[in-house]
């Protein structure tokens, strides 16, 4: 067995899956509360990635950073999370709020409208060119330096940062949802919105908070993607959003640990099918696996089977 190939695919799959997982969490949270497939979520990720790129430019550009790399990373993450979060809140307030009791498909179309708007507005304002984080050129080139694992496999600093960052964010989110008042309100709202409202929970606030947190995670995912995979461009959100959506579903949509598991599953499935089956048909392989999973377990890996109440 070629351990180098196996471990490399494992590292690639986990770090890629971590990015999917962060985006998928936002999808899942929103779905859990509003039963809304927020197709504009991938574009929030795109905006987060561009915010990170803007921060690099502000601090002197890739090869001439005026602050230490760790400070830059923190500033990038904070700004992207804040910016992404605010964008998510705005989308909810102005596009979705009036549609809460509309037929289910109306907000879906609105979400597609928001996605169209964001992608093309980004192209208008920022240009269609691919921009690069160029983290290989940073003073301490985080994407090029690496730790060595067994079988002379390498794991770059960027991959370590992504995996560690994702773990921190997921743990923080779990603590928030489990321990805080607002987190409990979220779970209650997700369980039954009307009953929660009757119990005195301010559902509007809960929804705003959900959008903020979910979109902030997508913003962080945008920065993580930038430091490892470099490119940012206006249409990057579409594909990432699609995969993250798939990840959310595979894990069981509306279920937070499920979203993380789903993200990792997709990342690993992609990596291993490239490594062991065929790079050409890796997407096809992933889709075929997923269809099989969905048919066997329609509610996803960790989702609870939907029981219809009469």
């Amino acid at each position: 067995m070629n351990w180098n190939l196996f471990l490399t695919e494992l590292v690639a799959g986990v770090s890629h899956g971590a990015v999917y997982a962060l985006i998928a969490l936002g999808y899942s949270m929103v779905y859990g509360i509003l039963k809304l497939l927020n197709f504009a979520h991938g574009d929030v990720y795109m905006v987060g990635s561009f915010i990170g790129f803007g921060i690099i430019t502000v601090f002197g550009g890739a090869t001439n950073l005026s602050i230490p790399v760790w400070a830059l990373l923190i500033v990038m993450l904070l700004c992207a999370m804040l910016g992404g979060g605010l964008l998510g809140v705005m989308i909810e307030r102005f596009a979705y709020r009036r549609l809460r009791n509309a037929p289910r498909i109306a907000p879906l179309i609105t979400a597609l409208g928001v996605s169209f708007f964001l992608e093309n507005a980004a192209q208008l304002v920022l240009g269609a060119q691919y921009q690069s984080y160029d983290s290989f050129g940073w003073k301490s080139p985080i994407a090029l330096r690496h730790f060595t694992l067994p079988a002379s496999t390498v794991i770059s600093y960027a991959e370590v940062i992504i995996i560690a960052g994702t773990i921190v964010l997921v743990v923080a989110l779990t603590l928030f949802v489990q321990r805080t008042q607002l987190g409990k309100a979220m779970r209650a709202t997700s369980f039954d919105r009307e009953a929660a409202a009757m119990m005195g929970i301010d559902v509007d606030n809960v929804i705003v908070a959900t959008f903020f947190i979910g979109s902030a995670l997508a913003g962080a995912a945008g920065v993580f993607n930038g430091i490892e995979y470099q490119q940012v461009w206006p249409y990057m959100g579409f594909t990432a959003g699609l995969y993250a959506f798939i990840a959310a579903v595979v894990g069981g949509i509306g279920n937070l640990p499920g979203a993380v598991l789903g993200g990792l599953t997709i990342g690993l499935a992609q990596a291993f099918s490239i490594g062991y089956i065929s790079s050409t048909f890796s997407d096809a392989v992933v889709f075929a696996i997923l269809i099989a999973v969905m048919i066997v377990r329609p509610s996803g890996l960790l989702g609870k089977a939907a029981v219809s109440k009469v």
Binding site: A95, L99, I109, T110, G113, V114, N120, Q123, L124
Partner: peptide, 19 residues
């Protein structure tokens, strides 16, 4: 580009006005 921005806006506005 404007064309697609407008399509996005029209979808959002129409859906909000008449779901």
């Amino acid at each position: 580009i404007t064309r697609l921005i407008l399509v996005g806006v029209i979808l959002i506005v129409l859906m909000n006005a008449r779901p």
